[in-house]
Design a protein around this nucleic acid. Structure first.
Lengths: 345, 345
DNA sequence: TTGTACGCGTTATCAC
DNA sequence: GTGATAACGCGTACAA
């Protein structure tokens, strides 16, 4: 259990440039130049100043500097939903990119509430961030924050509804194509698609890509149509049972998520179908915990979300430097082959 | 694809207090008082100032304010590993608590690298954060950042090695007790424990709690000893097979993680054991995606990590106000009952 | 090469 | 009630 501690020995106030200057016996102007690498200062003087700074463990006050410079070297990261597992990798990517660029990141979670979002936005603006990244939790377009913000904004994962904004998204249509092309390349011809809630644009996009690719190859959609449902293992199991009953000749299933795929694998095993011998399975999200631990290990589509976040950071950097862009920039996904599609049936 | 946009119409510089004062035809001193609710200003004047502020969509510069006040209203959140799923809930809790208190949160991910951690720490200090929360990804103690930082620090999830620091952790020993007590209450007497890597303190603590509770009840540890392995489904399956071979009379399994538990459920089903009829199963982490979608749904231990994060934020608030504490504060876990233990065999 | 002085945007203290 | 004015800590013209 925690105890109250004795009063801490008086913390010495953090050193200021004035302190350093005094110790080095120069003016604060000279101290500033010495520490910032300006070349109008004698080497010996600079050394003395640097030594003094070290000794006082001086660290320049970023607030004062920002006040003067008009730029703070900080950006906002406004997420609508930290819980959703899609925000996290995007967030990691941006944090990584900004950290490398000596930028600090303010994290705000609006929890899907637009009131809270506005509140956070005001707070960020009052802190004079240099730019803002808005991360959504679904691929459906979200309302724009507007064009008259004093800082550039980049939307990631969930695009802005306004084409005037710059948005970075995953190419879900392309991902659907990727999955079906892979299955066709594996020699499959009776390919079904089991996916989640049809109200999600992600579901529609992936299905569109899958449909288009099948049509171009002159192949039918096994099961007659895309099987929409929910993003759960339970739906994966249920849909598979229906599918096996109606279309027993199915030899491949493209799933809208790894969770669904886990349910599909489960049901296939129950019905004695070998994977990938009888039926090949492709998942979506490449969620390691699910995909890599499945039996057999699950081939899956990776949206490269961390990369998406990094690119978002780069675009924001560029925008801060005045090179603004607009429109929706679509990033390719990649297929990660594992056991559930490798062997040839 | 994104296109270059035409040069944006000149953004009007964000309004300052001077602008507001000029528009309201008062001095900046009066404007400041009016906006900050000081009571030495005529109502009519105040209204005029507020109107002017609205019109210019004035937002006070937090940098200037912080420079003067000596407090910035921002805190640092230093995580060692954003990828690990334990950091996220803690982080959500702290973000939530601080957001409500009008504090902004700087997010830094050190990626388990102490060099990067030092770098982030310096960056945060230069931004004059009011306090710092350090979130680890494992429950093993981590090196202290030291006692001579200019701001209070609270360690969450992973405690500091130094008892002089304040740390908040989950009570893993208590959680082990909780699980076994529940199984005993369900009428089980031949209880096994399959868990992860023995190098993790979490594994040792949970095992210790389980052992102690069994001893107190005069029950043996089924299987003869705790089955340590890795935090994977694969180990859950493998360990279960061994267990069923050596100790077929086992009637309950307490698992060190939900992933392990999923493997255990899998193997039990394969061997024709009914859950919970023949064998009851308890998981750990209460990871919804795994626990709630298991067949049967998995009873699991929840570490209340979001709450842990919120309490960490409260402790930091208190420390900022001068009420510092120290030592390790242990937060209770809770058992979430689901199908895998409810029915009586 | 070094030092002086101003200003970034606010708030608080004091006069008026 | 209101308005000058001095800080907060720093960078940078400009003067010395």
């Amino acid at each position: 259990m925690a105890e109250e501690s004795r009063p801490v020995p008086t913390k010495s106030r953090t050193a200021t440039l004035t302190d350093v200057a005094r110790l080095a016996e120069v003016s604060i102007a000279t101290a500033s130049k010495a520490l910032n690498g300006r070349d109008q200062v004698k080497a010996e003087t600079r050394a003395r100043v640097i030594a003094a700074a070290e000794k006082l463990s001086f660290s320049p006050n970023a607030l004062a500097r920002g006040l003067l410079a008009g730029r703070t070297g900080s950006v906002g990261l406004l997420t609508s939903d930290l819980e959703g597992r899609f925000s996290i990798p995007v967030l990691m990517g941006t944090e990584d990119a900004f950290g490398a660029g000596r930028m600090s990141v303010f994290l705000c979670d609006a929890r899907g509430d637009s009131i809270r979002e506005q509140h956070h936005l005001q707070s960020l603006l009052s802190r004079r961030i240099d730019g803002l990244i808005v991360v959504g939790s679904r691929t459906d377009p979200r309302p724009s924050l507007g064009r008259n913000l004093p800082v550039p904004v980049v939307y990631a994962y969930a695009p802005s509804e306004s084409p005037d904004d710059l948005s970075l998204v995953s190419d879900n249509v392309g991902a659907g194509r990727l999955a079906v092309e892979h299955l066709i390349a594996c020699g499959r011809t009776r390919i079904a698609h089991i996916t989640g809630d049809p109200a999600y644009k992600a579901a529609q996009d992936r299905a569109a890509g899958a449909r288009a690719t099948l049509e171009e190859a002159g192949l039918p959609m096994a099961g007659g149509q895309v099987l929409f449902g929910s993003w759960t293992e339970g739906w994966g199991r249920g849909a598979t049972r229906m599918l096996l009953a109606n279309t027993p000749e199915v030899d491949a299933i493209f799933c809208g998520s790894d969770q669904i795929a886990r349910g599909v694998l489960d049901a296939l095993r129950e019905h004695g179908r070998d994977v990938p011998g009888d039926v090949a399975v492709v998942g979506f999200d490449n969620w390691e915990v699910l995909a890599a631990n499945a039996r057999p290990q699950l081939t899956s589509i990776d949206m490269n979300l961390e990369h998406l976040g990094r690119v978002a950071a780069q675009r924001l950097f560029a925008a801060i430097d005045g090179k603004t862009g607009s429109g929706i920039e679509s990033m390719p996904c990649r297929l990660v082959p594992r056991e559930s599609t490798t062997a040839q049936g």
